[in-house]
Nucleic acid binder design. Structure first.
Lengths: 224, 224
DNA sequence: TCAAAAGTGTTAGATTTACACCCATGA
DNA sequence: TCATGGGTGTAAATCTAACACTTTTGA
């Protein structure tokens, strides 16, 4: 195939913006770069795309290496390809964002990889164009959370309506009216009230709800 | 940088979904592939990303090579990276969509490149994953046209409200009410009525409008 | 007993939708 | 004169937004 050979190849990597929700805050997982160039700078977690894997598989592998989890919600953000975005060599990177329930992430694995949850509103300057990636990922997620049931990927399988509302507020960055919010949730038959009570958050206790994915697929009218 | 060398490089290309509006139809520009593999198959127009250009520049260059135009609206759709998406070699491709006023595209250049406008509803099977690219581009454009003034990139600088409506209908794929549509447009002060009359489309003649980009940026309330 | 979070309806205002006729003109 | 596309307003229905008090219970 001499046709291809006229052109030059480049390294392609993936970078993953991992969102989590904890202590009423939306967080993102970052760590100090362990290698040159940029050693010691705050950075997203990433990896190179191998010759024998798709970019989606590379992202999945990267995410699983870091978290030990392989069934997380993940979507592409886009490709980042300035010539000198990587100070070492020409590398084109494809960003993905993933959603995780913080409690599902083994503290041991987190420490082993030296990554930390930082508040989305307090992200420090990151290596290369990683801040841009985070901004774009957040922008996409903000749209998505209004029209698709992704909130439940960030919460425990049982959650209270207040938790759901706090998460929603943390993502869109503004507060919403409690009664109006609950009204909208009650219209969604696939968010089911259980007869379990959460007593951690209040003395009175709050009803625990569950997302019924099957019911959602039968009648997916989602609108927040 | 031995760190990079542990990994393998791949070819990266760009593919451009060029949308145009003509004869009340939304069209996309495709041609027969001139090279192996896939010679003769319908395909998007694309090109390889060179070592010394950003992916955005590669897309711009590709678009300009094909159209001779360099100030078109263009946005990234996303990266496509299945292992065997290209039957020849491993190539990761980044798709972009561009908007063009069909009248601005030199017929001579079009013929030289052997590309054709086909109705978005009649796109034939395309090379590799190009149909998927077109679908995703269209999906993004459908969202975008409701919240951003991109319609005007597909129309002549002077246009009638009926043209604008037909374009909008062609993009979203359904008809809308004439009076309600015009009401919404009249609320946008940056769509300015000129005192020119278009006599081509009707005996009575229709007022020609113009998009005032400066006025838009001063007060960008766009909602269709 | 009181502090703290859970839970619950109504109303006014804004937005959206549906709908039908007259106008100007060239053929 | 008539066929064709241009142009215009109103009313009902729906959706959205604002708003405050009672309940439960552990400390």
């Amino acid at each position: 195939m001499t046709y291809y050979k006229e052109h030059s190849k480049v390294w392609v990597s993936v970078d993953v913006i991992i969102f989590g929700f904890d202590e009423q805050k939306l967080k993102v997982l970052i760590g100090r770069r362990q290698m040159d160039p940029g050693r010691g700078e705050w950075s997203l977690y990433g990896g190179f795309v191998a010759a024998d894997e798709s970019i989606d598989d590379a992202a999945q592998r990267t995410l699983e290496t870091l978290t030990g989890l392989n069934n997380l919600y993940m979507r592409q953000v886009g490709a980042f390809g300035s010539i000198d975005r990587d100070p070492g060599e020409r590398v084109i990177s494809i960003a993905y964002y993933a959603l995780i329930n913080v409690k599902d992430y083994s503290e041991q694995l987190r420490l082993e990889h030296g990554v930390e949850w930082v508040d989305i509103n307090e992200v420090p300057p990151l290596y290369s164009d990683h801040n841009k990636m985070v901004d774009q990922a957040l922008h996409i997620m903000r749209q998505k959370i209004k029209t698709a049931p992704i909130s439940f990927r960030l919460l425990p399988s049982l959650f209270t309506l207040t938790q759901l509302q706090r998460l929603y507020e943390a993502v869109i960055g503004e507060e919403v009216d409690k009664r109006n919010f609950r009204k909208r949730i009650k219209d969604m038959d696939f968010v089911e009230k259980t007869d379990l009570i959460d007593k951690k958050s209040s003395k009175r206790g709050a009803a625990l709800y569950r997302f019924n994915n099957k019911a959602y697929h039968e009648d997916s009218n989602f609108k927040l």
